[in-house]
Measured scan of single mutants.
Amino acid sequence: GATAVSEWTEYKTADGKTYYYNNRTDESTWEKPQELK
C-alpha cells in the first residue's frame, strides 16, 4: 500500500511549546496527531 505523507507539520511557539498544524485542513492541535504516532 502507499504510504500517506503526513500533512502535519510540527511548530514551536515563542515560549517553546510544541504544536502541530495540518496544511490541508487548516487545523492545529496541541496533541500529537494519530498519523505521527
Rank of each mutant, 00 (worst) to 15 (best):
G1N: 14
G1W: 14
G1T: 14
G1A: 13
G1Y: 13
G1S: 14
G1L: 14
G1I: 14
A2T: 13
A2W: 11
A2M: 14
A2I: 13
A2N: 13
A2L: 14
A2Y: 11
A2F: 13
A2K: 08
A2Q: 12
T3C: 15
T3L: 13
T3N: 14
T3R: 06
T3M: 13
T3H: 12
T3P: 14
T3W: 11
T3V: 13
T3F: 12
A4L: 15
A4N: 11
A4M: 14
A4V: 13
A4R: 07
A4P: 14
A4E: 13
A4K: 08
A4Q: 13
A4G: 14
V5A: 14
V5I: 14
V5N: 11
V5K: 11
V5H: 12
V5R: 09
V5G: 11
V5E: 12
V5P: 12
S6E: 10
S6A: 11
S6F: 09
S6K: 08
S6C: 15
S6G: 11
S6N: 11
S6I: 08
S6P: 12
E7I: 08
E7W: 09
E7V: 07
E7T: 06
E7L: 07
E7G: 09
E7H: 09
E7S: 07
E7M: 08
E7Y: 09
E7F: 07
W8Q: 00
W8I: 01
W8H: 00
W8A: 00
W8G: 00
W8T: 00
W8M: 01
W8P: 01
W8Y: 02
T9A: 10
T9V: 15
T9G: 06
E10Y: 04
E10V: 10
E10T: 08
E10R: 03
E10H: 03
E10G: 01
E10A: 10
Y11F: 11
Y11D: 02
Y11M: 15
Y11N: 05
Y11T: 04
Y11Q: 09
Y11A: 06
Y11K: 14
Y11L: 15
K12G: 02
K12H: 09
K12S: 06
K12I: 11
K12Q: 10
K12E: 05
T13I: 01
T13Y: 03
T13V: 02
T13K: 02
T13R: 03
T13E: 02
T13P: 00
T13Q: 04
A14L: 10
A14V: 11
A14N: 09
A14F: 04
A14I: 11
A14S: 10
A14Y: 03
A14D: 09
A14R: 07
A14P: 12
A14M: 09
A14T: 09
A14H: 10
D15F: 05
D15W: 06
D15Q: 06
D15M: 05
D15G: 07
D15T: 07
D15V: 02
D15I: 02
D15N: 07
D15E: 09
D15S: 08
G16T: 00
G16W: 00
G16F: 01
G16V: 00
G16P: 00
G16R: 00
G16A: 00
G16H: 02
G16L: 01
G16S: 01
G16I: 00
G16N: 04
K17T: 09
K17F: 07
K17Q: 10
K17R: 15
K17A: 06
K17P: 00
K17Y: 08
T18E: 04
T18V: 12
T18A: 06
T18R: 04
T18M: 05
T18N: 05
T18F: 08
T18S: 10
T18Y: 08
T18D: 03
T18H: 05
Y19H: 03
Y19T: 02
Y19Q: 03
Y19W: 13
Y19P: 00
Y19V: 06
Y19G: 03
Y19N: 01
Y19R: 04
Y19F: 10
Y19A: 04
Y20L: 01
Y20G: 00
Y20M: 00
Y20S: 00
Y20Q: 00
Y20N: 00
Y20K: 00
Y20I: 00
Y21P: 01
Y21T: 04
Y21V: 10
Y21G: 01
Y21Q: 04
Y21W: 05
Y21L: 04
Y21D: 01
N22G: 00
N22I: 01
N22Y: 03
N22H: 02
N22C: 06
N22W: 01
N22E: 01
N22D: 01
N22P: 00
N22V: 01
N22L: 01
N22F: 01
N22Q: 01
N23P: 10
N23G: 07
N23A: 15
N23D: 07
N23M: 12
N23I: 12
N23E: 11
N23Q: 12
N23V: 12
R24N: 08
R24E: 09
R24I: 15
R24C: 10
R24T: 10
T25Y: 03
T25D: 03
T25S: 04
T25E: 02
T25N: 04
T25V: 02
T25M: 03
E27Y: 04
E27H: 04
E27M: 07
E27V: 09
E27P: 01
E27N: 03
E27K: 07
E27T: 08
E27R: 04
E27S: 06
E27W: 03
S28H: 14
S28P: 02
S28T: 15
S28E: 10
S28N: 06
S28A: 12
S28F: 15
S28D: 03
T29V: 13
T29R: 11
T29W: 05
T29E: 03
T29F: 08
T29D: 03
T29A: 08
T29Y: 06
T29M: 08
T29G: 03
W30D: 09
W30P: 06
W30V: 06
W30G: 05
W30Y: 11
W30H: 06
W30T: 10
E31A: 05
E31F: 09
E31P: 01
E31V: 11
E31Y: 07
E31D: 11
E31G: 04
E31S: 07
E31R: 05
E31K: 05
K32W: 04
K32P: 07
K32M: 12
K32Q: 08
K32A: 06
K32R: 10
P33C: 04
P33N: 02
P33V: 03
P33A: 02
P33G: 02
P33E: 02
P33I: 02
P33F: 03
P33K: 01
P33S: 01
Q34E: 15
Q34L: 14
Q34V: 12
Q34N: 14
Q34K: 10
Q34I: 13
E35W: 06
E35A: 12
E35Q: 08
E35P: 06
E35T: 06
E35S: 12
E35D: 11
E35Y: 06
E35G: 09
E35N: 09
E35K: 04
L36T: 05
L36M: 11
L36Y: 14
L36V: 06
L36E: 06
L36H: 08
L36N: 07
L36P: 05
L36K: 04
L36I: 08
L36W: 10
L36G: 07
L36F: 13
K37P: 10
K37D: 14
K37L: 15
K37W: 15
K37F: 15
K37Y: 15
K37R: 13
K37T: 15
K37N: 14
K37S: 15
K37Q: 15
